[in-house]
């Protein structure tokens, strides 16, 4: 979180809405621990990361939807052989993210 504070503040000062995604839980192997955070503003700009780059694209989509609807949500990304095109962690882990509007 610490490393994305200044980006978030710059966006807020410019009048942007901001969504915050945080790793809440991790099962199996994953590159980032709980607490890893990523922020997305309403222009689609990104700060920070929640994985090694595997799920960030999908998180941006979810975060923009969170900003549009105003409702926070848990999102889970995992790897499955059955879903060749599904978003997941190539390292085989499952990551649980909480994505919310920064309105608190």
């Amino acid at each position: 979180m610490r490393e994305i504070v200044e980006d978030i503040e710059r966006w807020r000062a410019a009048g942007h809405d901001v969504a915050l995604a945080r790793v809440v839980d991790l099962a199996g192997s994953g590159p980032r621990d709980p607490g890893a955070a990523m922020a997305v503003n309403d222009a689609g700009e990104v700060a920070g990361s929640v994985s090694g780059g595997c799920v960030e694209g999908a998180v941006v989509t979810e975060a923009l939807d969170v900003l549009r609807t105003g409702s926070a949500r848990m999102v889970t990304f995992g790897y499955s052989d059955d879903e060749a095109f599904a978003v997941g962690l190539t390292c085989g882990g499952t990551v649980h993210l909480f994505i919310e509007p920064l309105d608190w």
């Binding site: 807020r12 000062a13 009048g15 809405d17 309403d42 900003l67 549009r68 105003g70 509007p101 920064l102 309105d103 608190w104």
Partner: peptide, 12 residues
């Protein structure tokens, strides 16, 4: 999208 006034930047 929520409509936020410029002063909202200090209101969290």
């Amino acid at each position: 999208m929520t409509d936020r006034s410029p002063t909202a930047a200090t209101a969290l």
